Simulated assay, not measured.
Amino acid sequence: MDGPGLDRLAPVGRETVQDRIYRQLRDALIRCRFEAGEIFLAGDVAQRMSVSSMPVREALARLVSERALEAMPNRRVRVPLLTLERARDIAQARSLIEGELAARAMDMLTPADIERLEALTVEYEETRESGDIASLNHAFHFHLYQAAGSSVLMPVIESLWMQAGPYVRAAAKLHRPLTDSAATLHHRGILSAIAAGDKEWAVRELKADINQAFAILERADPAVWDTDNGGAA
């Protein structure tokens, strides 16, 4: 996996500062940059991004309201700890909503869309050891979902991906197949289903792809869970 998430943040310009800070943090969460339990101090984030603390606090508060981060004492904010209950809830929500959007997209995909999905899968397979696989995985899924043209469901999916990021990161650290050729097995299945025009097959492959990371965590040592918050079964 990549190094500490804050090391990957870049300075932000003066225009629309709060939105740009929010987008960087949101995208970093979606792309699994942050560890569960990682702490944010507004001053530290502001220094890293070369901005003042106020827009950072506003961006962090926005992410807290979306449940991607959680407020702590002394004005600290952190990535939520891992709980088994929440893992199952996120996996189920992602499967339901993303499955629906994938089914809708099947009727809307153009040859150019399918070519792009194939290219992203090939790039993932060829660069899985050195490339940014989290970004490639995100690009594949979101290109598929955007074809459905739903302005209502896309923000819901983005929110779920922010919440899922620390779980996917934890699973990838526990199990190598998330970074080897098996990681694109279900992407290939989705492409085959698209070629066959089989929505049910596509949705099954999509749900299997979503659930593989959470299945790894289900089998993990109980030490990965935040048992103080009722996360362990």
Rank of each mutant, 00 (worst) to 15 (best):
M1C: 04
M1Y: 02
D2C: 10
G3L: 09
P4L: 12
L9E: 07
A10C: 01
V12S: 08
G13W: 08
R14P: 14
T16K: 15
V17S: 13
R20S: 15
I21Y: 08
Y22D: 12
Y22L: 15
Q24C: 13
L25E: 09
L25I: 13
D27A: 14
G37Q: 11
G43N: 09
D44K: 11
D44C: 08
V56K: 06
V56H: 10
E58V: 10
A59C: 08
A59K: 07
S65Y: 10
R67V: 03
R67W: 06
E70H: 08
E70T: 13
M72Q: 14
N74K: 10
V77Y: 14
V79R: 03
L81K: 12
L82G: 05
L84P: 00
R86E: 12
R88M: 05
I97L: 12
L101R: 12
R104Y: 09
A105L: 03
M108V: 05
M108R: 15
M108E: 14
T110V: 08
T110K: 09
I114P: 03
R116T: 07
E118C: 00
A119P: 06
T121Y: 03
T121N: 09
V122T: 11
E126Y: 04
E126V: 01
E126L: 07
R128H: 00
R128E: 00
E129G: 01
S130Y: 04
G131W: 00
A134S: 09
N137R: 06
A139P: 04
H141P: 02
F142D: 06
A147K: 02
S150V: 04
M154S: 05
I157T: 01
E158L: 15
S159I: 03
M162K: 11
Q163N: 01
A164G: 04
P166G: 02
R169M: 03
A171P: 10
A172Y: 06
K173P: 05
P177L: 05
L178A: 05
G189Y: 00
G189V: 00
I190M: 04
A195P: 01
E200F: 01
K207C: 11
A208G: 12
N211H: 09
N211T: 05
A213Y: 09
L217F: 14
R219M: 15
A220H: 15
D221F: 10
D226Q: 12
T227S: 13
N229F: 10
G231K: 06
